[in-house]
Design a protein around this nucleic acid. Structure first.
Lengths: 352, 352
DNA sequence: CTGAAAGCGCTAACAT
DNA sequence: ATGTTAGCGCTTTCAG
């Protein structure tokens, strides 16, 4: 293998510290781990030696006996560039990191990009580098889910539970998701309550994204109540701004008389708004628009500001982290991983 | 501490595999590490047992003796949200990941956000979890640089070398950076060669970002040659699209007669183009615009397409990874870390 | 080609 | 309050 730690640098060990401070390894260990039963005088001496020597505990050795690493992997499948450009993921990750940090755990982020990555990541997860994993964006039937199960690694999955052959495939593991379907209902009901009659939707790429499928389902739930919606009122896009703009244009071409649109993400909604403006439609007078996500950096700055479905994304991240920590603490008390659906609410601004 | 690996799941060990296959631990180890001197018959038997048992080597144990982890940390200071929204970083990271993957190493990403993160990350790096580190966006005098040095951890820094008291502070470690200053010169010289006389610039936040300072310096290099540029022709912004738009507006207010602008990032340039359009300036007839970065998703889709300074960002990431691997292989042959400046070139499109 | 034994650096009983 | 001992699971001489 290519990697070789510089061999000529021998880092000081517990034993070195012990010798230098004239105590036993156990005592040094106690000082390091902050145990009570050490004379403060000794503590001071040991601490001094530690910093003189620049001693840093070898985690591999510690880990070998404690079976703990204090690190948690966050694994994200990265479909092209999307992830890094997605403020939603940014917030989610921030929540995870912060919650873990509060518990003294380090979040390490791993990406899944090419097929080879799977085995390397699986080895990494199985190798005891981390105490648990939070996994996102896995596709139905993703091998990594199995691998994690087989390893017995505590895990929390983000997004709707994976399906295999149409059935939910989860078992001992937890998962959390936003209430995509419920949120979409909220949005569309609001449009209905405004008296809108021809309500279109810009949906996400729903063959790839569970969230997109759920948001579309929510739209259909509500509109189905008043007779099945016209299929032409649904236009799929790819969760980008430009995609939203193009989809809006297509909808307008097919249905010049539409009076409302539910757009499945704020980013796409900002594109849709632009198209509407270019086509001379007033928002909300001519066409009411509701988005999804409540990314304030977008929703508050569009013209007009966007009415949208709010998700507390950072809190969702924190929740995932807490769930993972709980599983690690008391695995037996959670035989079936809880499925937490985080609620959404509508935030009214000016666009609907 | 909060994290506890499920204790009731005893994962199979080398010893289990050895017993099951009727050979010694050494032999199993040899099979796993692909050494030559094992009868293929034995290899097969051991392999079968391994997969039956679902054995995965314990990296902590292995690491304790080999001092290798096959993992490399990528540490990124995250100034607010910026990082995740920055396609530049996305590309850089992709280059790093791919190059490391080719060498069988796993990239693990760590973020630096709050002050507490420093000690946790330092512990992580010092704890032997990784064979080396690639660090970005460190501010001058950043503690982490010292820490990495003290640990003797092979490292490569991204961005211009850190300064302390105005002096370069680097020593044994490598760093790589794009040629920000040279690229800016390229851009501005191009504008000059076009016959433009009142060349403004939208600079980045140059008290925080070395790259921003260097790009501004490049602008001044060229314009200084023909007498010092008017200070009012410089407007600082924050590397966002909106920031670019606002800065352009400010410049136009102060200098309605400007005939060119060098914008220090493509994202800001897209905002600037929008402002110019809104103010009725034709590009490039009235005002020529040059960006920086050559993020094709932006530069090719603006109206008009953006002339900009190209950086091979993914290659830069790969280079950082290769440099790190080289340091790990032969630390003694690289007493002073090489400082690699990756060249830039101008890509002409329609805006200038 | 294979096995035995030592030891990596640490923590966790168990003594004292 | 502190020291002693025994591993954790692996790789690596060194024998055979």
């Amino acid at each position: 293998m290519v990697l070789t730690q510089r061999s000529h640098i021998r880092r000081p060990t517990l034993e070195d510290v012990a010798r230098q401070s004239g105590v036993s390894k156990s005592t040094v260990s106690r000082v390091i781990n902050g145990e009570a039963k050490v004379r403060s005088e000794v503590v001071d001496r040991v601490r001094r030696v530690i910093s003189e020597l620049g001693y840093v505990p070898n985690q591999a050795a510690r880990q070998l006996v404690t079976h703990r690493t204090n690190a948690v992997a966050v694994v994200a499948a990265q479909p092209e560039n999307r992830l890094f450009i997605d403020p939603f993921f940014d917030l989610l990750l921030r929540g995870i990191r912060r919650e873990l940090a509060q518990h003294g755990a380090q979040a390490v982020l791993l990406f899944l990009e090419e097929p080879d990555d799977y085995t390397r990541v699986a080895d990494y997860l199985g190798g005891g580098h981390v105490d648990g994993a939070i996994l996102f964006s896995l596709r139905p039937g993703d091998r990594l889910a199995e691998i994690v199960d087989r390893l017995g690694l505590p895990a929390v999955f983000g997004g709707r539970p994976l399906l295999r052959d149409g059935d939910p495939v989860r078992h001992g593991q937890a998962h959390v998701d936003g209430d995509n379907r419920g949120g979409a209902r909220l949005a569309v009901r609001h449009l209905v309550s405004l008296g809108r009659r021809r309500i279109a939707t810009v949906a996400g790429p729903y063959d790839q994204e569970n969230s997109a499928a759920d948001r579309l389902a929510g739209y259909r739930d509500v509109l189905g109540d008043a007779g099945p919606p016209h299929p032409d009122l649904v236009q799929r896009a790819d969760y980008t701004r430009q995609g939203g703009a193009d989809a809006m244009a297509a909808l307008l071409d097919r249905h010049p008389d539409l009076d409302a649109v539910f757009v499945a993400s704020d980013l796409m909604a900002s594109g849709a708004l632009q198209t509407l403006r270019e086509r001379g439609r007033r928002v909300p007078e001519d066409v009411a628009v509701v988005g999804f996500d409540d990314l304030t950096s977008i929703a508050e700055t569009t013209d007009p500001p966007l009415t949208t479905v709010h998700q507390d994304t950072e809190e969702m991240g924190r929740l995932m982290a807490r769930l993972l920590l709980a599983r690690e603490d008391a695995p037996d008390e959670l035989p079936d991983g809880p499925s937490v659906i985080v609620p959404t609410r509508l935030v009214r601004r000016a666009s609907a």
